[in-house]
Amino acid sequence: MSETFAPVTMAEARPASVVTEGRWIRRILIGIAILFLALFLVLPLVTVFAQAFAKGLNAYLAAFTETDAHAAIRLTLLTAAIAVPFNLVFGIMASWAIAKFEFWGKNLLVTLIDLPFSVSPVVSGLIYVLVFGAQGLAGPWLIDHDIQVIFAVPGIVLATIFVTFPFVARQLIPLMQEQGTAEEEAALTLGASGWHAFRTVTLPNIRWGLLYSVLLCNARAMGEFGAVSVVSGHIRGLTNTLPLHVEILYNEYNFVASFAVASLLAGLALVTLLVKSLLEWRYADEIAAGARRH
Protein backbone atom coordinates (compact mmCIF):
# COMPACT_ATOMS: atom_id res chain seq x y z
CA MET A 1 0.00 0.00 0.00
CA SER A 2 2.56 2.52 1.10
CA GLU A 3 4.71 2.13 -2.03
CA THR A 4 2.00 3.74 -4.09
CA PHE A 5 2.15 6.84 -1.95
CA ALA A 6 5.85 7.07 -1.16
CA PRO A 7 8.40 5.39 -3.42
CA VAL A 8 11.34 3.86 -1.51
CA THR A 9 13.88 6.13 -3.16
CA MET A 10 11.95 9.18 -2.05
CA ALA A 11 11.80 7.95 1.53
CA GLU A 12 15.57 7.46 1.61
CA ALA A 13 16.34 10.89 0.27
CA ARG A 14 14.08 12.55 2.79
CA PRO A 15 15.83 13.57 6.02
CA ALA A 16 14.46 11.88 9.14
CA SER A 17 13.77 15.22 10.74
CA VAL A 18 14.28 18.88 9.99
CA VAL A 19 16.85 19.21 12.76
CA THR A 20 18.98 16.32 11.48
CA GLU A 21 21.96 17.26 9.31
CA GLY A 22 23.01 15.49 6.17
CA ARG A 23 25.05 12.29 6.41
CA TRP A 24 28.44 13.89 5.65
CA ILE A 25 28.05 16.76 8.06
CA ARG A 26 27.09 14.27 10.76
CA ARG A 27 30.18 12.14 10.09
CA ILE A 28 32.51 15.12 10.12
CA LEU A 29 31.11 16.44 13.42
CA ILE A 30 31.32 13.05 15.13
CA GLY A 31 34.82 12.54 13.69
CA ILE A 32 36.07 15.86 15.04
CA ALA A 33 34.63 15.10 18.47
CA ILE A 34 36.30 11.68 18.62
CA LEU A 35 39.63 13.02 17.37
CA PHE A 36 39.52 15.81 19.92
CA LEU A 37 38.83 13.40 22.78
CA ALA A 38 41.56 11.03 21.63
CA LEU A 39 44.12 13.80 21.37
CA PHE A 40 43.37 15.64 24.59
CA LEU A 41 42.04 12.95 26.91
CA VAL A 42 42.83 9.39 25.85
CA LEU A 43 46.39 10.02 24.64
CA PRO A 44 47.55 11.70 27.91
CA LEU A 45 45.89 8.96 29.93
CA VAL A 46 47.63 6.24 27.94
CA THR A 47 50.89 8.14 28.24
CA VAL A 48 50.60 8.24 32.02
CA PHE A 49 50.32 4.47 32.22
CA ALA A 50 52.89 3.87 29.46
CA GLN A 51 55.48 6.04 31.20
CA ALA A 52 54.70 4.51 34.57
CA PHE A 53 55.39 1.02 33.28
CA ALA A 54 58.26 2.09 30.96
CA LYS A 55 60.86 0.28 33.08
CA GLY A 56 58.76 -2.66 34.05
CA LEU A 57 56.51 -3.63 36.92
CA ASN A 58 59.25 -3.62 39.55
CA ALA A 59 60.25 -0.05 38.83
CA TYR A 60 56.60 0.88 38.94
CA LEU A 61 56.05 -0.74 42.33
CA ALA A 62 59.29 0.73 43.68
CA ALA A 63 57.75 4.19 43.40
CA PHE A 64 55.30 3.25 46.15
CA THR A 65 57.78 1.68 48.54
CA GLU A 66 59.70 4.83 49.45
CA THR A 67 58.65 6.56 52.66
CA ASP A 68 57.92 9.93 51.01
CA ALA A 69 55.35 8.28 48.75
CA HIS A 70 53.73 6.62 51.76
CA ALA A 71 53.60 9.96 53.53
CA ALA A 72 52.01 11.61 50.49
CA ILE A 73 49.38 8.91 50.21
CA ARG A 74 48.63 9.13 53.92
CA LEU A 75 48.34 12.91 53.82
CA THR A 76 46.05 12.81 50.79
CA LEU A 77 43.80 10.25 52.45
CA LEU A 78 43.81 12.24 55.70
CA THR A 79 42.94 15.46 53.89
CA ALA A 80 40.07 13.83 52.04
CA ALA A 81 38.93 12.08 55.21
CA ILE A 82 38.55 15.47 56.91
CA ALA A 83 37.43 17.65 53.97
CA VAL A 84 34.79 15.32 52.56
CA PRO A 85 32.81 14.69 55.79
CA PHE A 86 33.12 18.38 56.64
CA ASN A 87 31.68 19.41 53.30
CA LEU A 88 29.07 16.67 53.54
CA VAL A 89 27.74 18.12 56.79
CA PHE A 90 28.11 21.71 55.64
CA GLY A 91 26.50 20.93 52.28
CA ILE A 92 23.48 19.23 53.84
CA MET A 93 23.01 22.04 56.34
CA ALA A 94 23.35 24.79 53.75
CA SER A 95 21.03 23.13 51.26
CA TRP A 96 18.50 22.39 53.98
CA ALA A 97 18.52 26.04 55.01
CA ILE A 98 18.35 27.32 51.45
CA ALA A 99 15.77 24.86 50.15
CA LYS A 100 13.39 24.82 53.08
CA PHE A 101 13.49 28.30 54.66
CA GLU A 102 13.05 31.85 53.47
CA PHE A 103 15.53 34.28 54.95
CA TRP A 104 17.22 37.54 54.20
CA GLY A 105 20.46 37.16 52.24
CA LYS A 106 19.56 33.76 50.82
CA ASN A 107 20.58 34.68 47.27
CA LEU A 108 23.88 36.03 48.54
CA LEU A 109 24.54 32.73 50.32
CA VAL A 110 23.83 30.77 47.14
CA THR A 111 26.25 32.99 45.23
CA LEU A 112 28.93 32.60 47.91
CA ILE A 113 28.64 28.81 47.80
CA ASP A 114 29.54 28.99 44.12
CA LEU A 115 32.55 31.22 44.76
CA PRO A 116 35.22 28.47 44.95
CA PHE A 117 34.21 27.35 41.46
CA SER A 118 34.81 30.78 39.99
CA VAL A 119 37.98 31.74 41.86
CA SER A 120 41.33 30.40 40.71
CA PRO A 121 42.57 27.79 43.25
CA VAL A 122 45.88 29.64 43.52
CA VAL A 123 44.00 32.71 44.74
CA SER A 124 42.16 30.54 47.26
CA GLY A 125 45.48 29.33 48.59
CA LEU A 126 46.90 32.85 48.75
CA ILE A 127 43.91 34.01 50.78
CA TYR A 128 44.77 31.46 53.44
CA VAL A 129 48.39 32.55 53.46
CA LEU A 130 47.26 36.14 53.91
CA VAL A 131 44.98 35.22 56.79
CA PHE A 132 46.90 32.51 58.61
CA GLY A 133 50.49 33.03 57.44
CA ALA A 134 53.22 34.43 59.73
CA GLN A 135 52.74 37.90 58.18
CA GLY A 136 48.97 37.43 57.93
CA LEU A 137 46.05 38.82 59.92
CA ALA A 138 45.87 35.99 62.42
CA GLY A 139 49.62 35.28 62.20
CA PRO A 140 50.82 36.82 65.49
CA TRP A 141 48.01 35.22 67.49
CA LEU A 142 48.72 31.80 65.95
CA ILE A 143 52.45 32.13 66.66
CA ASP A 144 51.71 33.10 70.27
CA HIS A 145 49.64 29.98 70.68
CA ASP A 146 52.11 27.81 68.84
CA ILE A 147 49.67 26.82 66.13
CA GLN A 148 50.96 26.38 62.62
CA VAL A 149 48.44 26.51 59.82
CA ILE A 150 50.38 27.53 56.74
CA PHE A 151 53.06 25.09 55.52
CA ALA A 152 51.42 22.47 57.69
CA VAL A 153 48.58 19.95 57.54
CA PRO A 154 45.83 22.33 58.85
CA GLY A 155 46.47 24.72 55.94
CA ILE A 156 46.22 21.91 53.41
CA VAL A 157 42.98 20.71 54.91
CA LEU A 158 41.53 24.24 55.00
CA ALA A 159 42.47 24.93 51.38
CA THR A 160 40.99 21.60 50.30
CA ILE A 161 37.75 22.27 52.16
CA PHE A 162 37.51 25.67 50.49
CA VAL A 163 37.92 24.41 46.93
CA THR A 164 35.57 21.44 47.40
CA PHE A 165 32.74 22.90 49.41
CA PRO A 166 30.36 23.72 46.51
CA PHE A 167 30.05 20.08 45.35
CA VAL A 168 27.56 18.76 47.90
CA ALA A 169 25.56 21.95 48.39
CA ARG A 170 25.11 22.62 44.68
CA GLN A 171 23.86 19.10 44.08
CA LEU A 172 21.46 19.06 47.01
CA ILE A 173 19.90 22.55 46.86
CA PRO A 174 17.81 21.97 43.71
CA LEU A 175 17.05 18.40 44.76
CA MET A 176 15.70 19.51 48.12
CA GLN A 177 13.85 22.44 46.59
CA GLU A 178 12.12 20.07 44.22
CA GLN A 179 11.11 17.70 47.00
CA GLY A 180 9.60 20.40 49.18
CA THR A 181 8.68 19.87 52.83
CA ALA A 182 5.43 17.89 52.68
CA GLU A 183 6.99 14.55 53.58
CA GLU A 184 8.84 16.05 56.53
CA GLU A 185 5.63 17.70 57.70
CA ALA A 186 3.83 14.37 57.41
CA ALA A 187 6.53 12.74 59.55
CA LEU A 188 6.24 15.45 62.20
CA THR A 189 2.44 15.18 62.42
CA LEU A 190 2.92 11.44 62.95
CA GLY A 191 4.93 12.23 66.05
CA ALA A 192 8.50 11.97 64.72
CA SER A 193 11.10 14.28 66.23
CA GLY A 194 12.97 16.60 63.87
CA TRP A 195 16.05 14.35 63.95
CA HIS A 196 14.02 11.19 63.38
CA ALA A 197 12.25 12.81 60.41
CA PHE A 198 15.60 13.90 58.98
CA ARG A 199 17.09 10.44 59.36
CA THR A 200 14.10 8.46 58.08
CA VAL A 201 12.61 10.80 55.47
CA THR A 202 14.94 13.59 54.32
CA LEU A 203 18.16 11.60 54.13
CA PRO A 204 16.74 8.60 52.22
CA ASN A 205 15.16 11.01 49.74
CA ILE A 206 18.50 12.60 48.87
CA ARG A 207 20.77 9.56 49.31
CA TRP A 208 21.75 9.00 45.67
CA GLY A 209 22.24 12.68 44.93
CA LEU A 210 24.32 12.86 48.09
CA LEU A 211 26.48 9.86 47.16
CA TYR A 212 27.02 11.32 43.71
CA SER A 213 28.17 14.65 45.07
CA VAL A 214 30.39 13.06 47.72
CA LEU A 215 32.09 11.08 44.97
CA LEU A 216 32.88 14.21 42.96
CA CYS A 217 33.90 16.06 46.11
CA ASN A 218 36.29 13.25 47.05
CA ALA A 219 37.87 13.13 43.59
CA ARG A 220 38.53 16.84 43.73
CA ALA A 221 39.79 16.74 47.34
CA MET A 222 42.37 14.08 46.47
CA GLY A 223 43.39 15.69 43.20
CA GLU A 224 43.53 19.36 44.20
CA PHE A 225 46.84 20.96 43.27
CA GLY A 226 46.70 24.76 43.01
CA ALA A 227 45.40 25.88 46.37
CA VAL A 228 47.23 23.14 48.25
CA SER A 229 50.47 23.96 46.45
CA VAL A 230 50.41 27.53 47.78
CA VAL A 231 49.82 26.61 51.43
CA SER A 232 51.81 23.40 51.57
CA GLY A 233 55.42 24.56 51.44
CA HIS A 234 56.33 21.28 49.71
CA ILE A 235 58.05 19.71 52.70
CA ARG A 236 58.83 16.15 51.71
CA GLY A 237 57.30 13.51 53.90
CA LEU A 238 55.38 16.17 55.82
CA THR A 239 53.25 18.45 53.69
CA ASN A 240 53.25 16.78 50.30
CA THR A 241 50.01 15.42 48.97
CA LEU A 242 49.91 13.01 46.03
CA PRO A 243 49.60 15.70 43.32
CA LEU A 244 52.46 17.67 44.86
CA HIS A 245 54.55 14.51 45.14
CA VAL A 246 54.02 13.88 41.41
CA GLU A 247 55.31 17.37 40.64
CA ILE A 248 58.41 17.00 42.83
CA LEU A 249 59.33 13.64 41.31
CA TYR A 250 58.84 15.04 37.83
CA ASN A 251 61.01 18.07 38.54
CA GLU A 252 63.73 15.67 39.67
CA TYR A 253 63.57 13.84 36.31
CA ASN A 254 62.34 10.74 38.13
CA PHE A 255 59.81 10.06 35.38
CA VAL A 256 58.91 6.47 36.16
CA ALA A 257 58.13 7.21 39.81
CA SER A 258 56.36 10.42 38.89
CA PHE A 259 54.10 8.74 36.36
CA ALA A 260 53.59 5.76 38.65
CA VAL A 261 52.19 8.02 41.36
CA ALA A 262 50.26 9.92 38.73
CA SER A 263 48.73 6.64 37.55
CA LEU A 264 47.28 6.25 41.02
CA LEU A 265 45.46 9.57 40.63
CA ALA A 266 44.43 8.67 37.09
CA GLY A 267 43.08 5.37 38.39
CA LEU A 268 41.10 7.25 41.02
CA ALA A 269 39.65 9.43 38.25
CA LEU A 270 38.67 6.39 36.19
CA VAL A 271 36.98 4.69 39.14
CA THR A 272 35.18 7.93 39.97
CA LEU A 273 34.02 8.23 36.38
CA LEU A 274 32.79 4.65 36.36
CA VAL A 275 30.86 4.93 39.63
CA LYS A 276 29.50 8.33 38.55
CA SER A 277 28.21 6.84 35.30
CA LEU A 278 26.63 3.94 37.16
CA LEU A 279 24.89 6.33 39.52
CA GLU A 280 23.72 8.54 36.67
CA TRP A 281 22.40 5.54 34.81
CA ARG A 282 20.62 4.02 37.79
CA TYR A 283 19.30 7.12 39.58
CA ALA A 284 19.06 9.56 36.69
CA ASP A 285 15.91 11.32 37.92
CA GLU A 286 17.20 12.20 41.31
CA ILE A 287 20.60 13.35 40.10
CA ALA A 288 19.16 15.30 37.16
CA ALA A 289 17.37 17.65 39.55
CA GLY A 290 20.78 18.82 40.69
CA ALA A 291 22.53 18.64 37.35
CA ARG A 292 20.08 21.03 35.73
CA ARG A 293 21.56 23.91 37.64
CA HIS A 294 25.21 23.13 36.96
Partner: peptide
Protein backbone atom coordinates in the same frame (compact mmCIF):
# COMPACT_ATOMS: atom_id res chain seq x y z
CA UNK B 1 -1.87 13.81 68.18
CA UNK B 2 -3.46 14.98 64.96
CA UNK B 3 -3.71 12.96 61.77
CA UNK B 4 -2.94 15.12 58.77
CA UNK B 5 -3.70 14.11 55.18
CA UNK B 6 -2.06 16.22 52.48
CA UNK B 7 -3.49 17.11 49.09
CA UNK B 8 -0.58 15.47 47.31
CA UNK B 9 -0.48 12.50 49.72
CA UNK B 10 3.10 13.13 50.95
CA UNK B 11 3.69 9.39 51.26
CA UNK B 12 7.25 8.33 52.00
CA UNK B 13 8.41 7.25 48.54
CA UNK B 14 11.20 4.98 49.71
Amino acid sequence: AVGFVFQHYALFKH
